[in-house]
Design a protein around this nucleic acid. Sequence first.
DNA 1: CAGTATCCTATCCGATACTG
DNA 2: CAGTATCGGATAGGATACTG
Lengths: 230, 230
Amino acid sequence: MTHAGYQQFCPVAMTAEILCTRWTVLVIRELVAGSSRFNDLRRGVPKMSPSLLSQRLKELEEHGIVERRAIPREHGLHEYRLTPSGRDLVPVIEAFGKWGQKWVESGLTLRNLDPSLLMWDMRRNLDPAPLPDQRTVIQFVFSDVSRGPREYWLVVEPKGDVDLCSTDPGFDVDLLVATDVRTMTAIWMGLATVKDSRHSIEFEGDRGIAATMQKWLGLSPFATSERLAS
Amino acid sequence: MTHAGYQQFCPVAMTAEILCTRWTVLVIRELVAGSSRFNDLRRGVPKMSPSLLSQRLKELEEHGIVERRAIPREHGLHEYRLTPSGRDLVPVIEAFGKWGQKWVESGLTLRNLDPSLLMWDMRRNLDPAPLPDQRTVIQFVFSDVSRGPREYWLVVEPKGDVDLCSTDPGFDVDLLVATDVRTMTAIWMGLATVKDSRHSIEFEGDRGIAATMQKWLGLSPFATSERLAS
DNA sequence: CAGTATCCTATCCGATACTG
DNA sequence: CAGTATCGGATAGGATACTG
């Protein structure tokens, strides 16, 4: 049997048995970040197969880390939530993030570029406050994407909801941001600023929105010396 | 390819790629705890095959977490040490330990009993201070061990070095401790005290040493609400 | 003591397709 | 939308023996 457990009484070993399995930590990261629906979780771990995601969620449920429950009066829909013990894993995820942030060379970070994942992450942390108090549409065009969508639209509703599309939603675009995935990822990860990167970004549209990009964009929870908001 | 990496730019993913592989975290735990020689490490992860341990150490070396170096004027002998980035993993190990300590039911802990591993751990944290200032030999006899050694000797030298034997080293025994593995593990993990367990422990020999057992024994670094000493 | 070498298989996991 | 079913291949890793 390839997997018989560590057979150690040490709590570190116990935890490792649960967490140190492929994808598991990333699934938990997604849950910590706030995703709760199956397909939302999927978007956070696009390279993971749905069957494996399903399996992992079940394992986490068995371990009492995740609770799966029906959404009231939404027939057949379910959501996954962290239990108290799951929420107690936040320090573990934070420790991972902090260490990776400090010690994995940023070059490596910038080798795992993925525009759709980036946009999905950005959507989550976007801060609508600096934006006009009306529907605002920001279009991103990545010049260097060869496969898959190269254009994305963030639709920020007045109430603060943010939608992400990879096909034109048809609204008037307030600001168009043309750049490359590497530049945008570096900014998002706190490795560079919008200002630093001004030679690799072109704006078209509302100058005011462009000027405050560093503000409304927010940063990855794991950007340099930032902490994960629980 | 079963293992292509997560292909995510997130630092959590980077760290997970390195750490979330079978046995890796436990090897790091051993290094953090102070083991540096191959065979010492082995004793800390007895169920791990030497080839796999060797492989993991190489991987950790490649990731810059571990440094392997020859021991000066000890021809052919090597030791493994954590690099600065490796030492920065202490918070990760701590977070694992804390979570496991809090959330994995202690019943499970007490199902993974292993007397030799327990003794090896105890040896490491034993505090010689409360003991007489001369060689002190404490013998443990585990009544419930059916396979493998059931007797162990801790030989505490005046300078503070502690040796562990599973065959009689021949010295006079100052204190004999007769108990069962479960009781001893519970004490070591902070789930019980020597006093609590007095009906399951018998002493023979120096009453003074017996009386201070809770002191010289020390506790697991992961015992209830204890922190890992870096 | 400190590892290597070899072998072999269980199982993990990726890919894809499909369903209520 | 939210998963399940099925399949096959790669490989991780367990067991064991061996070596300088």
